[in-house]
Amino acid sequence: MEVKLMIVDDSLFMRKMLRGILEEDGYQVIAEAADGVEAVEKYRECRPDITTMDIVMPTKNGIEALTEIMALDSGAKVVMCSAIGQEALTQTAQAAGAKDFILKPFNPERVKEVIKRIAGA
């Protein structure tokens, strides 16, 4: 079965890059969102299998969006994207229900590995 993904990041550059990495492995990116508010809305609409979630974003940050998505769907699989130095935030995110995290700048192999693991879980 095809795994459907949503990418949440306020940077178009980051979204396109992540999409490029994931599509290489045959994943289907069905939605992109540029901030937390949009992420929650799109999640409600398209129910992706896996969501990658940036943390620092305007209007509603990634952790808030994660919390709302988890409230919406307790089985949601959300992977946080964080930068070095945000370790404290990733802990908060894991407590809020994030399944894993990938570090920016993206290492394509690590990204694929994490998503593969989550998809198989």
């Binding site: 306020d10 540029a34 508010v37 949009e38 209007t59 908060t92």
Partner: peptide, 19 residues
């Protein structure tokens, strides 16, 4: 630890979020 402004329901106010 995380203190970004949260303005729920005000979609479109963000700089890039309205498209």
């Amino acid at each position: 630890p995380l203190s970004l402004p949260a303005t729920p329901g005000q979609k479109g106010e963000g700089r890039q979020s309205n498209n």
